[in-house]
Lab assay of single mutants.
Amino acid sequence: MQIFVKTLTGKTITLEVEPSDTIENVKAKIQDKEGIPPDQQRLIFAGKQLEDGRTLSDYNIQKESTLHLVLR
């Protein structure tokens, strides 16, 4: 499924993921596309910060959901 990741600069990254993918996994995909190390990434969905060990389905993230990427 496709999800979108919006950065603070207003750029939107499109990722191909599975509901069973972990947040860690998603961060690795963002690193592949954008070169941002996962340890600098914070992903936010519905106002919650997403934890590395959880999966997209844990957070009920469905196709075409938009996550927000904050760098630390």
Rank of each mutant, 00 (worst) to 15 (best):
I44V: 14
E34D: 11
H68K: 03
E51V: 08
K6M: 11
I61C: 02
M1W: 09
T9Y: 11
T14W: 07
Q31M: 08
V5F: 04
P38C: 02
K29P: 00
L43C: 01
T66N: 04
G47D: 10
K33L: 09
D32S: 13
Q62M: 14
S20V: 08
V17M: 07
P37R: 06
Q41R: 02
D32W: 15
T55N: 13
P37Q: 15
Q40F: 13
H68Y: 04
H68C: 03
R42P: 01
F45D: 02
G35L: 09
R72V: 06
I44S: 14
E51W: 03
A46M: 05
R54F: 14
S20W: 10
E64D: 13
D21K: 03
I23T: 12
T22R: 07
Q40W: 06
A46L: 12
L67W: 01
L56K: 00
D32C: 03
E18V: 11
G53F: 14
L69M: 04
L50R: 00
G35N: 12
L50G: 01
I61E: 01
I13V: 13
E34W: 08
L8W: 08
R42T: 15
E24F: 15
L50N: 00
I30L: 14
E64F: 11
K33F: 06
V26L: 11
V70Q: 04
L8R: 07
Y59A: 04
Q62N: 10
N60H: 10
T14D: 05
D39L: 13
Q2M: 15
N25W: 06
I3W: 00
K48A: 14
T7P: 10
I13E: 02
K63Q: 09
I61W: 01
E64C: 02
A46F: 09
V17H: 04
H68Q: 05
N25A: 12
S20F: 10
S57Y: 10
D52F: 15
E18L: 14
Q49P: 15
V17C: 02
R54M: 15
K33W: 10
A46H: 15
A28F: 10
T22E: 11
I61S: 01
Y59R: 01
Q2Y: 12
P38N: 08
F45Q: 04
Q31A: 08
T9M: 15
P38I: 10
L50F: 02
T12H: 15
T55L: 10
K6Y: 08
G47M: 07
M1F: 14
K48L: 15
H68A: 04
D21Y: 14
F45P: 00
